[in-house]
Amino acid sequence: ETSLIFNTYLPPHDELYQIAVRDFAAAIERESAGSLKVVIPDASLAPSDRQYEMVRDGIADMALVSSGGVPQLVALNRIADLPMNSPSARAASIALWETYNTYFLPFDEFKGVKVLSTSVLPGRQILSLRRTDVQEVGDMSGVKLWSPPGALSETVRLLGAVPVNSEFTDLQEYVTKGTVDGMVMAAGSASSARVLDYVTSVTEVPGGLGSLSFAVFISGERWNELDADQQAAVLRAAEGLPERTGAAADAAERELDPVMAKIPTHKLEGAALAGFEARLEARIDDWKTRAAAKGLQNPDEVLAFYRDVLARETRDSLD
C-alpha cells in the first residue's frame, strides 16, 4: 500500500475542495482497490502561495495551485484567467483542460509535477455598492474596486478604476465602511465574505472580467514511483474531474440566483459591451505576447481553440 499526502488550503465548505480534493482522493482509493491511500491533513502544510514549492520539497505529494500562484512558471494556463473566457466554470474548466493537453503540455510549464486536472472559477463580475452604478466603461473612472492582486487588479486599472487589494478577512470591513465602491468577484465569493447583502447593482460582462484557474497536480517523483496499475487508477479517478469541479462551482453560484434576482443587473451588450471589449483587448494581447515569448507558435489559434470548446460546452449545457 502506497500512501499519498494530498494537501489543501481550502476550507471544507468550498466546492473546489469537496470535488477536486475530498472526492478525488476517495476516487483514487476506490480505483486503486486500496493499493493507494490518500491522506488529507487537517490543515494546510504550507501557505497558499507555496503549494508548488511544498510538493517539490516533498512535504506533500499532491496539491492544488492557482495559476497566479506560480508566476515564475505558468503563463499559458492563464488563458482561462483572461476577460470573457469563463462564461461558466464548467465550460471554462473543460476548455482549459483540453487546451492544456492539446497545446500546453509539451512546454512543461509545471516543472517537476504532473498536472491531473484543471479547473476554472465562474467569471468575476462587477458588484457595485451604494450609489455606484456601472452601465458603460466611462462609469468605471475613479471607482474603487476591491479585487484580488495580480491579473484582475491589472484589468480593473485598465478600465480606469482603482484596484484596492486586501486580505479577504478585511473585505467586509471595507465594504460596510465605504472604503470601496464595489468589488470584482463572483456572487459566491461575495456571499462567503458576507458582503453580498450590500451589493446594490451588478454589471455583467459575458464570460466575466476575468477568472481564477487552478491545477491539481502530483509530484513528478512520486508519480514515477507508482506502478503502472496505480498510475492508471489515478488517471481513471481524474477522468472528467475538470467538468465535475466546474459544474459544482456553477451549482453553488446558481444557489444564489434567488438573491441575485433581486439585485438590478446590467447585462452588457451592444455599444456598452464594445466599450469594455476595446479596453480589455490589451489584456488578451498581453497574454499572447507572453505565450509567444514562451515559444507558443500561434497564440491566436490556441485562443480560437479554447473559445470553440467554450462555445461547444455552453451550447451543450443549454440543450
Binding site: 500512501s3 499526502i5 502544510l45 504550507a46 501557505p47 507555496r50 514549492e53 511544498m54 520539497d57 516533498g58 512535504i59
Partner: peptide, 15 residues
C-alpha cells in the same frame, strides 16, 4: 511521522 522524514520536516518548519 512524515513519510519523507527529515527533509520534509525541515521544509515545513522553514516555510
Amino acid at each position: 511521522i512524515h513519510p519523507r522524514g527529515f527533509g520534509a520536516a525541515l521544509a515545513i518548519s522553514e516555510q
